[in-house]
Write a protein that binds this DNA or RNA. Structure first.
Length: 693
DNA sequence: AACTTGTCAATTTTT
DNA sequence: TTGACAAGTT
C-alpha cells in the first residue's frame, strides 16, 4: 500500500486522476518519475491488473529506473506491468504479429552505421558515373529518417519535392524508396521502422488493430515533449479503446525538435484529447532559489509555452557565478582549479561536479585541464560497447548466420579478416547475382555457376570457403538453439567466430599487444553477455541480437567509480542532476549555436532565427544544478588555426544581474565590476592588435 | 593488400 | 586543427 501523503498536492492529484486523458506538466526537478511510479502503484492498489498497465519512455535508462522504483513501491505484482521504450514496444508488437507483417523468418535491426552503409550503396549505384554528384550520405539519411519520424512514406515524400527544390531533398526523395526496398530485401528494419512499420501494420490490419487497442487499459508516456509524429500515432492506437492516457513532460525541456520531436503534441494535448485534465508540478526539490530564478527568467523569453514557474521552499544560498575567461584553455583551467578549490574548502567530492557544453568538441580542453589537475572524469555519450569495431564485426558474423539476406553484414565481413575477396570480386559477384535475381549471399554460394568466367579460381574458392564458414556457423547455432551443442550458444558462437579468423586478426593487426588484449577482452565480454542472456531469457540468438540493438549500455558500468567529474553535452544532461554545474562556452555561436543563427551557411544570417530550442537547452543546463552554478565563457577562442574574439551569449542578458556575481578568471576570487570587465576587454584587444600588427 | 596523400567539412543523438 | 574518407601509390 502506498502513502499518498508522501506527495504534494498537485503530485497527488496527478496520481489519483487515473481515468481519462491527463497531462502532467512536470517542471525540472519536480518529482516527475515519482509521480509516474506512484501512479502505477496506486493503480495496482486500486485493483487494476498489472498486465493492463503500460508505461513508455524514450531511453532504456529511464525505463530501467522506472522498473526499479515501481518494483520497490508495488512489489512482485508490479513485475507484470509493461515498462518499455517506444522502440522496444514496437519490436514487441511486430514480433507478436509477425504473421501479419509478412516476415515469418524474423528480421535484423539496422543501426545507424548499417543504415548509412545502405544509403551509400544506393548513392554509389545511382551516381556511379557522375562525378559532380557526390552527396553526403549522412545528410540524405538524415532526411529519410526525418521523413519516417513524421510518418511520411516514400511516395508522399516524393510529392513534396519536385525538381528544383533543395538538392538534398530531391536526392532523398530518389533514395528513400530504394532504401526501403533494400531494407526489405535484406530482411532488415531500421530503428525508425520499429515505430513506423508498427503504425502501418496497425493502420492496415483490423484484427491486429483491435488486439492492441484493447491490450492496455492504462497507458503512460514519459518525456512526452520528445514524441515525434510516428510515436504519437502509435500511442493513439494503443489508447483508442480505453482513453486512459496520461502523458508526463515539460515543454520547456523539449530539445529534440531537430530530430522530429513535436512540441506541439504537449502544447495541444487537450485539443487532441478533448476533456483532458492538466496538472502542473511547479515545486522544485532540487535547486536553490537563485538557480531557479535564473531558469525562470531565461525561459520566460520563450513564447509558445505552457505558463509555469518553478519555486522552492529551500533557503537562498550562493549566487550564480558568471566567469569570463581569456580563451578555451583558460576556461578549462578555471573549471579544474575551481573544482580543486571547492573540494578543498567546501567539502565537495569530484563526483559532485558536472561540466556541461553545447557541442562535443568543447570537451577537449576540459579533459586536458582535468587530466593536468589529476582529476578523474567520465564522459557521458562516449563510444558504446556494442559499437566497438571488434564487437560489431562479431555481431555481423552472427547476424549473417541467422539472416543470410542481410547484405550490409555480409559486405562487412566478407573480406574481414582478409581472405582474398576484394572489391572487384564483390562487384562482379554482386552484378551476376542481380542478373540472376538472387540475393548476394546466394550469388556467392553459386559463384561457380553464375560467374564462372568472370572470376579467377582463387576468388571462387575464397567465396566457397567463406560460404562454408557461414553455413557451418548457422549449423552450430542451430544445434546450440536445439540444445545439442555443449556449452550452448556462447560456445557455438565462439567456435564460429574462431573459425572466421576474427580473433587471430585482432591479435595480429593490433598496433600494440595491449591494444590487442583490450579488443580480445571486449570480444570475450560480448560472449559473456550472450551467455548471460542465454541463461536468463533462453537460447534464442535472434532475440539476443534484437536486444543488443536496442540496448546501448556501455561496458564501464562495472568500474564506474562515482568519484569522477562528469563531462556531458547539454542534451545528454537532461534528466541528470549535480551539486555543482559548470556551463561552459556561454558565447554567441556556441549557445545559441552557429547553425541556429546561420542555418543556410556561414554567410547567411537568419534574420529571425528560432532560438527557442537553444534557450531551452540553457534552461535544461541551469536546472541540472542543485547548489552551485557557474556560467563561463571565453573572450577568444581558436577556431582552426587562428584566435577569434567571442561575444557573450545573448542569453546571459536574460538573467537578472542580482542573481549572479560576475568575475574574471584572470582575477580569481575577486568580483569584477562591469567597468573592470570593460577595461580588461580593452586591454586584451590592445594586446591582440599589437600582436597582429 | 597495405600504405600514403589529398580533400572537405566541422551541433545536438536515443533507439 | 582534427577526422573521415576516397583515390592514388607502392
Amino acid at each position: 500500500m502506498i502513502h499518498l501523503d508522501e506527495l504534494n498536492s498537485p503530485q497527488r492529484e496527478a496520481v489519483v486522476t487515473t481515468d481519462g486523458p491527463l497531462l502532467v506538466l512536470a517542471g525540472a526537478g519536480s518529482g516527475k518519475t515519482r509521480v509516474i511510479t506512484y501512479r502505477i502503484a496506486h493503480l495496482i492498489d486500486r485493483g487494476v491488473r498489472p498486465d493492463d498497465i503500460l508505461a513508455v519512455s524514450f531511453t532504456n535508462k529511464a525505463a530501467d529506473e522506472m522498473r526499479q522504483r515501481v518494483d520497490k513501491l508495488a512489489g512482485r505484482l508490479a513485475r507484470r506491468c509493461t515498462l518499455s521504450t517506444f522502440h522496444a514496444l514496437g519490436l514487441q508488437i511486430l514480433k507478436a504479429e509477425k504473421a501479419a507483417l509478412g516476415l515469418p523468418s524474423g528480421f535484423t535491426i539496422y543501426d545507424a552505421s548499417d543504415q548509412l552503409g545502405t544509403v551509400k550503396e544506393i548513392l554509389r549505384r545511382l551516381y556511379q558515373s557522375d562525378d559532380d554528384r557526390r552527396f553526403d550520405a549522412k545528410s540524405v539519411l538524415f532526411r529519410i529518417s526525418r521523413a519516417k519520424n513524421a510518418f511520411v512514406g516514400p511516395e508522399e515524400f516524393a510529392e513534396q519535392f519536385t525538381d528544383e527544390d533543395h538538392e538534398y531533398d530531391v536526392t532523398a526523395a530518389e533514395v528513400y524508396p530504394q532504401y526501403q526496398e533494400a531494407l526489405k530485401s535484406f530482411h532488415a528494419l531500421d530503428f525508425d521502422d520499429l515505430i513506423c512499420e508498427t503504425v502501418r501494420l496497425l493502420d492496415r490490419d483490423e484484427a491486429v488493430r483491435e488486439r492492441w487497442a484493447n491490450r492496455f487499459r492504462y497507458v503512460m508516456v514519459d518525456e512526452y515533449q520528445d514524441t515525434n509524429r510516428a510515436q504519437s500515432l502509435l500511442l493513439n492506437h494503443l489508447v483508442r479503446a480505453s482513453n486512459n492516457v496520461c502523458v508526463v513532460g515539460d515543454d520547456d525541456q523539449s530539445i529534440y525538435g531537430w530530430r522530429g520531436a513535436e512540441a506541439g503534441h504537449i502544447l495541444e494535448f487537450d485539443k487532441h484529447f478533448p476533456g483532458a485534465k492538466i496538472v502542473k508540478l511547479e515545486e522544485n526539490y532540487r535547486s536553490t532559489p537563485h538557480i531557479l530564478d535564473a531558469a525562470n527568467a531565461v525561459i520566460a523569453h520563450n513564447t509558445k509555452r505552457h505558463d509555469k514557474r518553478l519555486w522552492t521552499a529551500r533557503p537562498a544560498r550562493d549566487k550564480l557565478q558568471l566567469v569570463a575567461c581569456e580563451d578555451a584553455e583558460g576556461e578549462a583551467e578555471f573549471v579544474a582549479g575551481e573544482i580543486e578549490a571547492l573540494c578543498a574548502t567546501r567539502g565537495f567530492r569530484p563526483g559532485d561536479f558536472a561540466v556541461l557544453y553545447r557541442s562535443n568538441v568543447q570537451s577537449r580542453p576540459i579533459e586536458e585541464a582535468l587530466r593536468a589537475a589529476s582529476l578523474s572524469y567520465k564522459m557521458i555519450g562516449g563510444q558504446a560497447f556494442f559499437e566497438r569495431k571488434e564487437v560489431k564485426d562479431a555481431i555481423a558474423y552472427l547476424k549473417l548466420a541467422l539472416h543470410p539476406r542481410d547484405e550490409i553484414s555480409l559486405r562487412r565481413v566478407i573480406n574481414y579478416p582478409a581472405r582474398g575477396i576484394g572489391p572487384t570480386t564483390i562487384e562482379r559477384i554482386a552484378q551476376a547475382a542481380t542478373q540472376h535475381g538472387l540475393p548476394l549471399f546466394d550469388g556467392c554460394q553459386k559463384a561457380h555457376e553464375i560467374a564462372a568466367d568472370a572470376l579467377a579460381d582463387r576468388n571462387r574458392n575464397a567465396l566457397a570457403s567463406f560460404c562454408d564458414l557461414v553455413e557451418n556457423g548457422r549449423a552450430l547455432i542451430a544445434s546450440a538453439q536445439g540444445g545439442t551443442h555443449p556449452g550452448g550458444l556462447k560456445e557455438a558462437a565462439r567456435a564460429y567466430l574462431m573459425a572466421s579468423g576474427l580473433q587471430d586478426d585482432l591479435q595480429a593487426a593490433a598496433p600494440t599487444p595491449l591494444a590487442a588484449q583490450k579488443k580480445l577482452t571486449n570480444l570475450e565480454g560480448f560472449l559473456t553477455s550472450l551467455e548471460r542472456f542465454e541463461q536468463r531469457e533462453g537460447r534464442d540468438l535472434g532475440a539476443f541480437l534484437h536486444r543488443i540493438s536496442l540496448d546501448t549500455k556501455d561496458d564501464d558500468e562495472g568500474h564506474d567509480q562515482s568519484d569522477q567529474v562528469t563531462l556531458v553535452t547539454l542534451h545528454g544532461a537532461k534528466g541528470l542532476e549535480f551539486p555543482v554545474v559548470f556551463l561552459v562556452g556561454m558565447e554567441e555561436e556556441l549557445l545559441p549555436h552557429k547553425r541556429t543563427l546561420y542555418p543556410d551557411g556561414p554567410d547567411v544570417l537568419d534574420a529571425n532565427p528560432d532560438l527557442g530550442e537553444e534557450r531551452r537547452l540553457l534552461y535544461v543546463g541551469i536546472t541540472r544544478a542543485r547548489e552551485l552554478l557557474y556560467l563561463t565563457r571565453a573572450r577568444q577562442r581558436s577556431s582552426r588555426a587562428s584566435a577569434r574574439p567571442r561575444s557573450p551569449s545573448r542569453f546571459l542578458e536574460e538573467i537578472p544581474p542580482h542573481l549572479y556575481d560576475a568575475r574574471d578568471a584572470a582575477m580569481p576570487s575577486s568580483v569584477a565590476t562591469p567597468e573592470d570587465e570593460e577595461a580588461f576587454a580593452r586591454a586584451a584587444l590592445a594586446k591582440l592588435l599589437k600582436m597582429t600588427s
